[in-house]
């Protein structure tokens, strides 16, 4: 379980402070797929870095499986947006996936099994010997996902993982993430600025306001569990949910503008 209680984060500078997160409370149940969506610049990445233990919150707390997060917690994996920079360019694909397992202290045979299994799960069974930069952007992000899978996390955080890939690759990767989630059953927190993507992927969509960020609304996505790029996206209910989220985010943007002009 992932619990966020009254999380605040302010960045202090010389004389002026910026409030990035203003009081966020959110709970994600074990094995749930939650998408977090919000207008650009609303502190989504800050939130995710606080959850991952990469950033110390100003107030409030984060708990992963009941443990308060003070540093990167066990059993949590992050897939970063910048796939080109999150894979080690001097390690081959298989070595990239294997490295966190080494630091976990797993034996060689076990590491190899996990590497093979995770590469297979993302459809890159043959790419283990390649270097990341020999692969396309979409394939590199698959490797990053495979690395997260092999780590066997209870919670997986994804920070706008498909923001930098082309539309077709993106659709493939979205379906891949759903498949992976179903197969391995981890708790999934998926941050995106793309409303369609959030509604298509999530069991629940959390809408954020613009900064200082708070939770606007929790929306359950009552779409059938089997999602399909064509059928789901043309489904009347999908369109309805999507429009709702869109309207709320637009509202939030407007509010943000008002707030900025006010002294």
């Amino acid at each position: 379980m992932l619990e966020i209680r009254s999380l605040r984060k302010t960045y202090g500078g010389q004389g002026r402070t910026v409030e990035a997160l203003g009081d966020i409370t959110l709970t994600v149940d074990d094995g749930q797929f939650v998408c977090v969506v919000g207008p650009s610049g609303c502190g989504k990445t800050t939130l995710l870095r606080c959850l991952g233990g990469l950033l110390e919150p100003t107030a409030g707390e984060v708990r992963v499986s009941g443990q308060v997060v003070t540093g990167p917690p066990d059993g949590l994996a992050i897939v970063f947006q910048e796939y080109g920079r999150s894979l080690f360019p001097w390690l081959r694909v298989a070595e990239n996936i294997e490295l966190p397992l080494k630091s976990k202290g797993l034996g060689k045979a076990e590491r190899r099994t996990l590497v093979d299994e995770s590469l297979g799960a993302v459809g890159l069974a043959d790419a283990g010997k390649a270097y990341p930069w020999q692969l396309s952007g979409g394939m590199q992000q698959r490797v990053a996902i495979a690395r997260a899978i092999a780590f066997q996390p209870k919670v997986m955080l994804m920070d706008e993982p498909f923001a930098a890939v082309d539309a077709q690759t993106r659709a493939d990767l979205e379906d891949l993430v759903r498949t992976v989630w179903k197969r391995f059953g981890m708790t999934m927190l998926f941050v995106t600025h793309d409303i369609d993507e959030a509604v298509y992927l999530g069991e629940r969509v959390v809408m954020l306001s613009s900064s200082p960020t708070h939770v606007l609304e929790n929306l359950d996505i009552d779409l059938p569990s089997e999602r399909d790029q064509l059928k789901t996206r043309s489904d009347a209910r999908f369109v309805e949910l999507r429009s709702h989220v869109y309207a709320r985010i637009q509202e939030a943007k407007g509010a943000g503008v008002l707030r900025e002009t006010a002294p």
Binding site: G52, L54, G71, P72, A77, I78
Partner: peptide
């Protein structure tokens, strides 16, 4: 980003 990756995977 690589430094963050190392931290989050506890390398």
């Amino acid at each position: 980003v690589l430094a963050d990756t190392c931290r989050s995977y506890q390398i």
